[in-house]
Computed example of a mutant assay.
Amino acid sequence: MDRQRTLLQLTQKMSAAIAAQDWQALTAINTLLGTALPQMAAQGKWNSAEWAALAALRQMHEEAVKRCNLATDELAQKLQQMQANQEGWLAYALESEYA
């Protein structure tokens, strides 16, 4: 297995998933990293190109975590707004039902 190529491919896939806000793909990539990285490490010493590819993957992973946290915060905010407006929606629905 060419570790450098694999790491770069994972970085590209993660970048695409971030751009598309494809949370399922990010989850799958994250799970894959949990098994692939220890297997790669077991192959022996890393050369400088592999270390660079690993650093790029780590940086992309950090970006993915930031984006996931932002999306989580945005969703929580929307849910909070919906909950705050729930009473108004119920009143509107009841009024529409009687009209």
Rank of each mutant, 00 (worst) to 15 (best):
Q9V: 07
M40Y: 06
N85G: 08
T11N: 08
T31F: 09
Q77V: 10
E97R: 14
N69D: 11
W51R: 11
L7M: 07
K66N: 10
A84F: 00
A25N: 02
K13G: 09
E62S: 13
Q9T: 11
S96L: 15
Q59Y: 00
A20C: 02
G44C: 09
N30I: 11
A49S: 12
A17T: 02
A76F: 04
S15I: 07
K78P: 00
Q81G: 05
A93D: 12
W46S: 14
T72S: 13
Q86A: 14
A93W: 01
A49M: 08
N30P: 07
W23G: 13
A84V: 01
E95W: 03
L33F: 04
N69G: 10
H61M: 14
K45T: 10
A20P: 00
L7N: 05
M40D: 00
A19Q: 08
A19H: 03
W23D: 08
A52H: 06
A16M: 06
D22G: 05
Q9C: 06
R58G: 12
E50M: 05
L75E: 09
A56I: 03
E97A: 14
G88K: 08
T6M: 15
I29W: 01
K45C: 11
E87C: 09
T31R: 11
T11W: 05
N69K: 07
Y92I: 15
L32Y: 01
Y92F: 14
Q4D: 08
Q39R: 10
L54A: 14
Q9H: 09
R5S: 12
T27Q: 11
K66P: 00
L8I: 03
A93L: 09
A25I: 05
W51S: 11
Y92G: 13
N47P: 06
Q12M: 02
A52Y: 01
A71Q: 06
M1G: 08
I29S: 05
T35H: 00
K78T: 06
S48D: 10
L10I: 07
N69W: 01
T27S: 14
Q4I: 06
W89V: 13
L54G: 02
W51M: 15
L75K: 07
W46F: 12
E50H: 01
